Amino acid sequence: MYRKVNYKLNFFLLIYAMIFSFFSCVSSNESLPDSEVTTNPSNEITVTTEDTKNLDGKKLTVVNSEQPIESNQQTISPLEKYKNKTKNILISPLSSPSEIMKGKTFDSLFTFGLTDSNNMPLENLSVTISYPSFSANGIVSFATEELMTDSRGTVSFKAPLIEFACDDFVSCYITPELMDDEVANYIQKTATKIPFKVHTDKIWNVFSVSILDYTEAGTPITSNSLTSSAILQEMYTKHLSVGNSDWVSEIDSDDNILLYKHAKSLFGNTIGYLIHGKLTYLEGVTTNENGNKTVKLNVSYGVMDMKTGEDVLTDSFDVTGEDSSEWKLFDSIRHNIIAPKIVNAIYYGL
């Protein structure tokens, strides 16, 4: 037959006996004054005396040693650890491949060098290479590869065959122990970068440009399109085949089905893509405190695939400018902001 033992009760009785002995010693063989014994869920036993003459109202607390002891030591965040780890390390770009066409491979390596604060090479250091791996609708996705520096403190990365157009960067940074949002944002700002440029393989296609300019009153300008002309000139710098076309009513009504029907009827299969859109006012021309002219405009456009009638690229953006005259203002906006932005999106996006 087994006997059931209440171990918890025995533990408290043992502690109480120890406390009783303690007070007996303190009181020089006098009897233990009136006292109160309490316990709490954290396994503490507290004895409080009421006889201030003998024990001065002493309070004794015994804590179960099995309970964890809280530490006042502050933890260091992953970001602070990463900053401490990398603060004396310099990463430099050493070699950059030339721009290539979509569907090709880079003819050389992306190479970075790592040195310490004394300009000495850092060997066997883990770094991460982040590089574009895919692009769709103008959004670039990235892949990573972890490498170790060699005896010269360098790492070299060979990019795979690139099947998409892209204008971005290959980044190199010290591999973090933990990658949280703060560390990722810090790396995004501080990583060493080398340009990663892959232009479209549509350079043999013929493009047509039809951007409809509007007056400040919101009326379409039918006599000419200075914005189309600026885009055409910019496309020439990329060695693209391009010409102007006018589709006033179709673009003004935002009727892409009718636009495709009429353009297909006119061009047949002679062009590959139609760049169409609008330049409208958001704020009229004003004169600022410096006596210069200012304006705020919006550009919206699409690049239509003439095989399907679908837009394969679309965007809308606002532009502002300031110049000494209204003519210079609009000429600068068209040639220095609008045309480069649209043409680069096409050249590195199709």
Rank of each mutant, 00 (worst) to 15 (best):
K4S: 00
L14Q: 11
Y16K: 15
A17D: 10
M18H: 03
M18D: 05
I19T: 12
F22A: 07
S24R: 15
N29M: 15
E36K: 10
V37A: 09
P41G: 13
N43K: 14
T46D: 11
T46R: 09
V47C: 01
D51P: 05
D56N: 11
K59P: 15
L60R: 03
L60C: 01
V62M: 04
P68H: 09
E80F: 12
T86G: 13
N88R: 05
L90M: 07
S96N: 14
S98I: 00
E99M: 03
E99N: 10
K102N: 04
K102P: 00
K104N: 14
F110A: 10
T111K: 07
G113E: 05
L114T: 01
S126L: 04
S126Y: 03
S126I: 00
S126C: 04
T128P: 02
N137Y: 12
V140S: 13
A143Y: 05
T144E: 03
T144F: 03
E146R: 11
G153R: 09
V155P: 00
E163G: 13
A165L: 07
C166G: 00
D168F: 09
V170E: 04
I174S: 15
I174T: 10
T175M: 10
E177W: 09
E177Y: 09
M179E: 13
D180F: 06
A184V: 14
A184I: 13
I187N: 00
T190Y: 08
I194W: 04
I194A: 04
P195N: 09
K197A: 06
V198K: 15
T200L: 08
T200Q: 14
I203L: 06
S208H: 05
D213N: 12
T215I: 10
E216C: 02
T219V: 10
I221V: 12
S223C: 07
A230Q: 12
A230C: 10
I231Y: 12
I231P: 00
I231K: 08
L232K: 12
T237F: 03
T237I: 07
H239V: 06
H239F: 08
S245Y: 14
E250C: 15
I251V: 15
D255L: 02
I257S: 02
H262D: 03
G268F: 08
G277D: 01
K278P: 01
K278A: 10
T280N: 08
L282K: 10
V285I: 13
N288E: 12
E289T: 06
K296E: 14
G302S: 07
G302Q: 13
L313Q: 06
V319H: 01
E322M: 09
D323E: 12
K328S: 11
L329R: 09
D331K: 11
D331C: 09
S332L: 04
R334E: 01
I337K: 10
A339K: 00
P340V: 11
V343R: 09
V343D: 02
V343H: 04
G349M: 05
L350Q: 13
L350R: 11
